[in-house]
Amino acid sequence: MTVDLNLVGAKGAIAEAAEGKWGMSIDQDICTGCQACVAACAMENNISFVGEEDAGYGRSQHWIRIERFWEGAYPEVKATPFQPMLCQQCGHAPCEPVCPVFATPHSEAEQLNLQVYNRCVGTRYCANNCPYQVRSFNWRDYHTIPERGNMVNGTLVFPLHNQFNPDVTVRRRGVMEKCTFCIQRIHKAQDKAKSEGREVEDGEFTTACAQACPANAITFGRVDHPESLVSQLTHQKRGEKHLEELNTLPRVTYLKEG
């Protein structure tokens, strides 16, 4: 569904349908915090690792992180359910309007929050304005730090670069990045379906994190199709969205215990 952004009316009225298109549900009751999604995301999306010092200083590039807090004190202490936090692909994203160069526009076709690396000039306003704090910035050219390469006949080669996913841009320094809901996979699936003259089927493809998740805690799909798995999970009573009160219209639903 396309929305005419020129509609005159209350500001809320021009926001997208609260539903969205692609969405995700994360079952915190079965998420074991095993970090497989984090690793899978890094492998799929050419995310650079930053090393010990920068990682400890809040510069890690994880597009998805698993949060855990504590409740109570020993021996009644309890770790709160693991909470994978990733870009919520808000329908009403606070990060989008603040970019001066349209580097993080909204895609009408996918109803996702895009990050166009090649337009980004690095003002980092989007990251400040993201209430979920899920954007990561390329503070340096981590991929080409000389210590990561080998000198072969006088040239620096980086064996790790062989692993780069050709479908995903390798970001250079000074560029913001974030979870894209594996938009490259969405496109591939959509185009395959189109060439076969059909719609994308539920479960035909999924994001890297959902694909890896050993507990199947992450489900990805069309939230606007009532019969899809993600849509059914999302509409469970235990479904909850983060910081919904900010009217960001997040597309990720967290399923709580109980």
Binding site: G58, R124, N128, Q133, R135, F137, R140, G174
Partner: peptide, 12 residues
Amino acid sequence: GLWVAGVMRPSY
């Protein structure tokens, strides 16, 4: 790159 400065998450 900006890593030589003090900026990081969340103080972008």
